[in-house]
Computed example of a mutant assay.
Amino acid sequence: MIEVEHLSKIYGSTPAITDVTFSVEPGEILGLLGPNGAGKTTTMRILAGYLPATNGNARIAGYDVHENSLAVRQRIGYLPETPPLYPDMTVEGFLHFVAQIKGVPAGDRPNKVTAAIKRCNLEDKRRVIIRKLSKGYRQRVGIAQAIVHDPPAIILDEPTVGLDPRQIIEVRNLIKSLAGTHTIILSTHILPEVSMTCSRVAIINRGKVVATNTPENLMTQLTGGSGYELEIEGEAALAKQVLQNVAGVSLIESIPTAGGHHPQANRAYLRVISQPGKEPGKDIVATLVRAGFGLHELRRVNATLEDVFLQLTTEEKNFETEVDLAADNEGEAA
């Protein structure tokens, strides 16, 4: 449904994205995950026809984004980070207006608008003026305008930014309900957003896609998938030396506490990461006991998406600032 091949965008001499390649299957939700300034919004703007790419190709529903821009825009719903709303219109009036400019036939507009209102749980707000809505409801209206013409592909740029926890859950459930009948790209830098919403993730850092897979596979492939947290009596440095020769152990590191406990005197807290497919827990216990360490707790922990994210990304403040400024300047010129 969505194919991106070797996409690049350069602002002056600053590359915003470089050789970005990924695809999204019909009915799938792909999470475009990366730190601020990594190139997520630039990629979204190119796919939506808002910006031209410097190099590379992108196709949506078989149409080239550059060569068939109008056909692509008829087949996508786009929600930028700031929803494009008219605050003095009612929800229903605004959606009728959007349906008209998106080419929905006049006879179909009432049903399309009602369907979008219902799907976004806006029935009791349909005659409310948009400026009187909370941020969470305005975000729902933004999603409604993106789906009112029932497009096959939906592009959502940071759809839950600035929302409170309840609103985030509501918008997340709404997005998940759109999967299957719509193909969705969702950009975010919020890690739980990806694991709870997306079937697949593409991690982008400094303008390049550095990994693409399901969240579960990424956690397994890049971190070994699981490990153990230990609370022992004794010195951490000595315990690390003892454990480094245990078969199946790939990494040993000190942590503030294990299991969320308050640190206690003469206690050491360690995280032991196992090699893929290995479960050295029994040998870890036996080795510590033989060496005279008191073992107070051993608990299995699974690798998290945060571990993957930190492994694959770095904060490059100067790069991010240059790209953000260049993007803002080009957006204003447009």
Results as ranks from 00 to 15, higher is better:
residue 192 P to A: 12
residue 121 N to V: 09
residue 2 I to M: 10
residue 142 G to N: 09
residue 2 I to S: 04
residue 193 E to D: 15
residue 334 A to P: 03
residue 156 L to G: 05
residue 271 R to S: 14
residue 258 A to W: 11
residue 243 L to R: 01
residue 275 Q to T: 11
residue 109 R to A: 07
residue 201 V to C: 13
residue 125 K to C: 10
residue 234 G to T: 04
residue 216 E to M: 07
residue 148 V to A: 08
residue 174 L to Q: 05
residue 139 Q to F: 11
residue 266 N to W: 00
residue 312 L to K: 10
residue 263 P to C: 04
residue 86 Y to L: 12
residue 189 H to G: 14
residue 99 A to V: 05
residue 3 E to M: 10
residue 108 D to A: 10
residue 303 A to C: 02
residue 76 I to R: 08
residue 141 V to A: 06
residue 149 H to Y: 11
residue 318 N to S: 13
residue 72 V to M: 09
residue 60 I to K: 02
residue 115 A to V: 05
residue 282 K to Y: 14
residue 93 G to N: 03
residue 298 L to M: 15
residue 16 A to N: 03
residue 108 D to S: 15
residue 100 Q to R: 09
residue 297 E to A: 15
residue 183 T to A: 13
residue 3 E to I: 07
residue 195 S to E: 14
residue 64 D to N: 14
residue 276 P to I: 07
residue 236 A to P: 09
residue 186 L to S: 10
residue 155 I to S: 11
residue 163 L to P: 07
residue 122 L to I: 09
residue 195 S to L: 05
residue 61 A to E: 10
residue 231 E to T: 10
residue 173 N to R: 06
residue 98 V to F: 04
residue 314 T to I: 04
residue 225 G to R: 02
residue 124 D to S: 06
residue 183 T to W: 09
residue 172 R to Q: 12
residue 315 E to Q: 12
residue 218 L to V: 15
residue 327 A to P: 01
residue 265 A to Y: 01
residue 287 T to I: 02
